[in-house]
């Protein structure tokens, strides 16, 4: 380079790429995704301020002024949603149940997205025996029946929430891994990946700088889907009575209401709110994933 170039002004080294900008701007364009995010923010706020919103211990057995157990009380100013057959405050359970639902959903989402992304990237990029091995493991995980597997696993390892999350993650990572793998298979044949090789980029740089950012929206899609699945699964396990009876969750509330025949007593305030909450959180997850699908597959836009 013989000719002398006048120096360029200093460059900012970091800036938002258009993909990231699109990722952040997505909720503003898709009303469903926007609704999903609003629902999540609302639940997150409730979970964070649960102690202030419902200062009563949700597992504490409450007594009336007359000294009797405050069982099966109807909704009132003191007990917003009434009490259970054992005299526990339903409103407090509902508010504190938000915590476990979000904890289960988010931790499962993080694990599923991380494992699925890493496995998909490695499998698709390196191919060969490692791809064959990982994909056969994925096939095995996919062939397990979902709820029975979770019940059996929690039966062996204990019904703690962490074990339910682990079981859900174990079953859900293959879906994301396979889709991400197929995307990597197509991306690694792109000319700009070859260009990176010919300019001397090593394979880790190619994988993480040139390929991974292009599949991140897919990871988000699967994370959002995993939130819903994990919360449904945790609720199902608890509802079926295989959960941890000492922890407060929406599924546990439904199980309590069911086994104490709340429906026959007309205690709708006991089981309708947790059911609605489960539906809201799960649907919000699917709304968000829908929005990210559109970011990832622009052809879906405007349909």
């Amino acid at each position: 380079m013989a000719e002398r170039a006048e120096p360029l002004p200093a460059r900012r080294t970091w800036r938002l790429s258009p993909g990231v900008k699109r990722l952040l701007a997505m909720p503003l364009r898709d009303p469903f995704a926007f609704a999903g995010i609003v629902i999540y923010l609302a639940f997150a706020l409730v979970a964070l301020s649960a102690d202030r919103l419902a200062p009563v211990d949700p597992m504490e057995i409450l007594f009336t002024k007359a000294g009797k157990v405050a069982a099966n009380m109807p909704p009132s100013a003191e007990f917003l949603l009434g009490t259970t057959n054992l005299g526990r405050d339903i409103y407090a359970q509902l508010v504190h149940g938000t915590r476990s639902a979000l904890a289960v959903g988010l931790s499962a989402a993080v694990i599923v997205a991380t494992v699925g992304t890493v496995v998909g990237l490695v499998s698709g990029y390196f191919g060969g025996w490692i791809d064959a091995l990982l994909m056969r493991i994925a096939d095995m995980a996919l062939s397990l029946p979902f709820l029975p597997f979770v019940i059996v696993l929690t039966g062996f390892l204990g019904a703690e929430t962490e074990n339910i999350v682990a079981a859900v993650a174990l079953l859900l990572w293959p879906n994301s891994a396979r889709v991400i793998r197929s995307q990597v298979l197509s991306l690694r044949e792109r000319a700009y990946v070859e260009a990176a090789r010919v300019t001397g980029a090593n394979q880790w740089r190619i994988l993480f700088v040139h390929i991974a950012p292009n599949i991140l929206p897919l990871s988000f899609v699967y994370a959002a889907i995993a939130i819903g699945w994990a919360i449904i699964t945790e609720a199902s396990v608890n509802f079926l009575g295989f959960g941890d009876p000492t922890s407060v969750s929406w599924g546990m509330m439904l199980q309590d209401a069911f086994s104490s025949q709340a429906l026959s007593r007309g205690q709708y305030a006991w089981f309708v709110p947790p059911g609605l909450c489960i539906i809201l959180v799960v649907v919000a997850g699917f709304f968000i994933s829908r929005g990210y699908e559109e970011v990832f597959m622009p052809r879906l836009r405007g349909r």
């Binding site: 790429s17 993909g19 000319a191 700009y192 070859e194 260009a195 300019t199 001397g200 040139h210």
Partner: peptide
């Protein structure tokens, strides 16, 4: 790699869009 380089057929695909 520093000495041997390639010019691609399809310039629309040869640059990382990000």
């Amino acid at each position: 790699r520093r000495q041997a380089q390639l010019v691609f057929q399809n310039p629309f695909d040869a640059l990382n869009p990000r």
